[in-house]
């Protein structure tokens, strides 16, 4: 199979393709480093409060873990979806390296489908949580009767003041929505980036000689996936 006629454009500040590629790769790794600290700060705050307000955190994760399809929690479904999408991402990089453009396009679409599926499940979760009344807005936070009863029971078991526990419970939800929300934002950006990749792939821009963009955006997706691997046990499996 002959190589695609397109040559790789080298930006004027770079000496050659190799240098451009090296710079782009290092650039994405450095950027992901900043993202680690970004999410790390949030996770640090969450973990500190988990230790301080364990009862409330436990109550929170009972709800997050309880939204289930076919007996499996939505968080676990999301984890499965994202892990599979990372597989399709890795395969799409491989497809580019082997010059298999049609396979690449299919894999890109598959990744986007999984990404959108993730977002869909998230949306369903958020809707469910809205109905449970746990969105931590000032006037929006009114947990329904079942949740409130659970809270009271937990308060009595530990001797805690129910009003205090309610406040801590609300804090859990603040962290939950903040962390999953920022993560979801990154997913939406990821789907957008993959749309860009798809458009260019359909124009045949990615060849074994010029597939840096696929690799770099793939790295971003892997990172967002990795963040979820941390968020899932932290938010859903508090025991």
């Amino acid at each position: 199979m002959t190589e695609a006629a397109t040559t790789v454009h080298v930006e004027h500040q770079f000496d050659d393709v190799e240098q451009q590629r090296e710079a782009a790769t290092l650039g994405i790794w450095a950027f992901l480093g900043t993202e680690v600290l970004f999410f790390g700060g949030m996770i640090c705050g969450y973990v500190v409060y988990r230790r301080l307000y364990f009862t409330a955190w436990h109550q929170g994760s009972l709800i997050t873990d309880n939204f289930r399809f076919l007996g499996i929690s939505s968080g676990a479904w999301n984890t499965a979806v994202l892990l599979t999408s990372s597989l399709t991402v890795a395969l799409s990089v491989r497809a580019t390296q082997l010059g298999q453009n049609r396979a690449l396009i299919k894999l890109l679409i598959a990744t986007m489908v999984f990404g959108i599926a993730f977002l869909g499940i998230k949306a369903a979760e958020y809707t469910h949580e809205y109905h449970e009344g746990v969105i931590p807005g000032e006037s929006m936070f009114h947990p329904d009767d079942e949740v409130t009863a659970d809270l009271h029971r937990a308060a009595d078991n530990t001797g805690a003041n129910p009003a205090t526990l309610r406040g801590q419970f609300r804090l859990f939800w603040l962290f939950y929505f903040f962390m999953t929300g920022v993560h979801a934002l990154h997913m939406i950006i990821g789907v957008g980036l993959f749309t860009f990749l798809l458009i260019r792939a359909r124009r045949g821009k990615y060849t074994p000689a010029s597939h840096a963009q696929v690799e770099i955006i793939g790295l971003y997706w892997h990172f967002v996936d990795l963040v979820w691997i941390f968020l899932f046990p932290l938010l859903y499996l508090v025991k």
């Binding site: 900043t34 700060g41 801590q168 804090l171 603040l174 903040f178």
Partner: peptide
């Protein structure tokens, strides 16, 4: 810098939502 970003975001959330962070 990312840690500052998160810290300020949390202060903002506390101001707006009156949640006890």
């Amino acid at each position: 810098t990312p840690v500052l970003a998160i810290t300020l975001a949390l202060v903002g959330l506390e101001r707006v939502l009156h949640v006890g962070i």
